[in-house]
Amino acid sequence: MLNIIACFKWVIDHEDIKINPETHELVLDRAGYRISDYDRFAIEEAVALTEQYGGSTTAVTVGLPAAKKSLKDALARGPEKAIFINDPAFHNLEPSQTAAILAQSISNQEYDLIICGEGSGDLYAQQVGPRLAEHLNIPCASFVRKITIEGRELIAERRVDEGIEVISMPLPALVTVLPEINSPRVPGLKDTLSAAKKPVVEITASDLGQTFASCLETVEIKATTMERNCEKFGAEKDELKRFIDVLCRAGVVD
C-alpha cells in the first residue's frame, strides 16, 4: 500500500498574458489560471501507481485562497483527497518559500512517496521538489521518466545529460517527473462530479506557526520582445521563388 502525495501548482495561463506595448510591462489581471501542465503528469503518476500497487493519493497545493478553484480539477484526476495550504500572504511565493511551507505542512503526514512535476508552468525554476526533499531529509531523484516499486525500494529511470541513469532509493522518497512518464487521463463528467464530494483539508499560515521569508528580490519583470521582419509569402510558385530569392540575398542560402 502506498501513500502518495502529489504536489501541484495553480499557475497563470501563459496564453492569457498580454503585453503593454509602450511600457513592456506584463498585463496579468485578466489572465486565467490552470493546474500547471507538468503537475498533471505528477498527479497521473501518483494515481497510476496507487492503482497498480494499492494505496491512496493526496493532492497538495500551496497558494492564495483563490487557488481553491484548482481543487476540483485536481481531485477529478483521481486523488482521494486534497490538502489546500492557503493564505492571502502566499502571494508570488518563490521556490524556497513554497518548499518550506510544503515541508512544514507535510512533515506530520504519513507518506511513502512525494511526486512533483519537473518544474512549474510559470516560473519553471525546478527547485521545489529537490528543496522539499532536503527539508524533509528524504532521498530524491529528479527528471524521472519511469518508476517501479519493489517492496520498500523505488527504482527510477532518470534523465541525465549523457542519457539515462537507473537509481534505487528506499521509501519514503521524492521524485520529480518528466512529461514523458505517462499520458494524463482526461477527467470525465463522473470524475468531476465525484471530485466535489472528496475531502479537502485546509491549512492556513497561522496553522503552520511560523513565517516564511523570501530570499530573492525581484528588481524588474519586463516582457521579452522579438523584433522580426514579419514578411509573409503565399504558397504559389512565383511567391516561393521570391522567398528563395530573399534568402539568397540575406546570405543564408548559397
Binding site: Y124, Q127, R131, L132, C140, S142
Partner: peptide, 23 residues
C-alpha cells in the same frame, strides 16, 4: 545547470536556506 546540477543546486540552496536563481 545540467540536469543533475539543477537538482544539486536546489538541494544545496535548501541546506543553506538561501535563494537560487535557476537557469
Amino acid at each position: 545547470a545540467t540536469l543533475r546540477g539543477k537538482e544539486i543546486a536546489a538541494r544545496v540552496a535548501a541546506g543553506l536556506n538561501t535563494g537560487l536563481c535557476s537557469e
